[in-house]
Design a protein around this nucleic acid. Sequence first.
DNA 1: TACAACTCAGGCAGCGCTTTCCCACAGGTC
DNA 2: GACCTGTGGGAAAGCGCTGCCTGAGTTGTA
Lengths: 348, 348
Amino acid sequence: MTDGGIDTRPSRPATLHDVAREAGVSLATASRSINGSTRKVNDEFRERVLQAAARLDYSPNVPAQAMARGTTTTVALLVADIADPYFSSIAAGVVAEADAARLIVTMTATDRDAERELEFVRALRGQRPRVMILAGSRPTADSAESALGHELRAYERAGGVVVLIGRNELGLRTVLVDNAGGAVALARALTGIGYRRFGVLTGSEGLLAEVDRLDGFRAGLEAGGGSLRDDDVVRTAFTRDGGYDGMRRLLSRGLDGIELVFAASDIMAVGALSAIRDAGLTPGADVAVAGFDDIPTARDVTPPLTTVRVPLEALGRRALRLALGNSDAAARAVATEVVLRESTPART
Amino acid sequence: MTDGGIDTRPSRPATLHDVAREAGVSLATASRSINGSTRKVNDEFRERVLQAAARLDYSPNVPAQAMARGTTTTVALLVADIADPYFSSIAAGVVAEADAARLIVTMTATDRDAERELEFVRALRGQRPRVMILAGSRPTADSAESALGHELRAYERAGGVVVLIGRNELGLRTVLVDNAGGAVALARALTGIGYRRFGVLTGSEGLLAEVDRLDGFRAGLEAGGGSLRDDDVVRTAFTRDGGYDGMRRLLSRGLDGIELVFAASDIMAVGALSAIRDAGLTPGADVAVAGFDDIPTARDVTPPLTTVRVPLEALGRRALRLALGNSDAAARAVATEVVLRESTPART
DNA sequence: TACAACTCAGGCAGCGCTTTCCCACAGGTC
DNA sequence: GACCTGTGGGAAAGCGCTGCCTGAGTTGTA
């Protein structure tokens, strides 16, 4: 870490006070020059201040500014799992939008643990973020629920704004995905290309997304003339391995006429594809598969996966816009779009 | 947003002062009770303070604490692209480790733009984070380089610590990946199962990772008796589409005896697989493909991709540990591991 | 009884910044 | 020339918290 002749002793960072002294002006003038207030500052003074700041490598102390101004420039984002493409895409959207608003994003993972989520909300509240965004659907009712609600309400009462993504509770601002509509459209598209007998892999936690997708799919089948028997609905974990296991269960029990398996998320569908292949069958040809979300991988598996595109990054952007008071972001659920690919070849 | 009978007027959040008054103790005692200092506090007093805090929904103002204490609890993380599994995995590691150290992570994306990176470093410096982590290799030399170095050095001089992931410049702390070693091992493994004639898809930006992987692969081939002609090395974008294009170039030019194409990253390899398939060939059988990184998708494509595993999350954890002064994290480059899968069937 | 030695609550001075408020001065008007 | 108005720099009061310092009260010892 040595640096030649340059002085590397840890010295305290330059303060505005230092800059003011160096420029030979008052603290107030220095402040006004650097961050530009409503007040005007003589050009020559400003120039002097700016040069002094550059000379001292001055960088305004954000916490101090926050305190003096009584407001921060922070957005807190709470997701279930950062490495999950679903959430990292949302995060990318939030960050991009925050960027445009010159806000900075702090990010934390709950690991899908309601206890941790509560704990983090509590801790994050202390940061006095302007906005708190919670992504990731959770079971509709649980013990930590009321505590979470209490915490979030206290935060809002103190002037914060919270936005929920993909869940609708507690009377808070929400960005919803049109899961039901997408599932309806998917079912109709599939019946439209000749499928009649279906199976479903869905989660077992009662998440909002799970329920809406299954209900929507059912409704769409009804409209399109497809059929789904209750015991062809397999409940399993909402993960790749869950999809694999669920599909295996279906296969070992005997497909019994099922032509297409709808997995309630793409990662489950990916697991299902592997299970089909491991059983010696060819996905698409022997049994078709469709998913939901359109994660990037969906294009890259073989056969490419039919799915419903959820504009994840847009979801993140919209959440922040909504928080910042952009009312058109408050519109109805984010639209989804059916994407037919080779995992569901047309049946003629 | 209405709330029944409860008062929802935005009121200023409770301060420690309020809590102290409510509990009938001094500010100092309230502070000591809530955050626990070296000083002891009478149990009864503490209890009273804690209850008052709960009653008022008190949440300590972190920026104010930061200022009073003269130190924050923030880690700033700068990555190229949050939605990229490579970076989101690293981020997950950083966040997990930060969590353990009760630090919170702020995250920003540079979009692979050196200008933006510089701008962000400047802005982040103002947050006075304890640690700054920059992930994502960049061309070794460019115009913004010296400015970036200046900024980072100023930050370190003021007591911060910066860690670079996957790049080694400016004499800063670094977490390095053993790209060369992994590539050597991969080449030997591939020659070991019978491959002799190779092609390579690599990036065109001169990134450290690109260079090391290619050099290592060459060295491994030499040792293992494989051959790689200079004009069988295709330089293209370090992305999925770059991989697709590069492979197509190779195919349309004629494979000319190439048995296996090594793509310098998994996403490029995924693109290459698609290109091969689109050309009517079967990846694995007609031409083998290997990648690098072992992103989750690598298992899910068909055929599953042979690659070199880079423990991305561990990389993130290690970066933070290193920053926090855990010296064993300063050890040598993070080891990588060859993972042979069906995209490179043994040639007998 | 007197005094030393502790213990621990409370007072208060900052931390680095923004933002009134005050005031000096320049320019304009009658 | 007296007065008003507008402009813009500087002094100073906080923002919410921590941590040093003071000093009151308690216990122990001679």
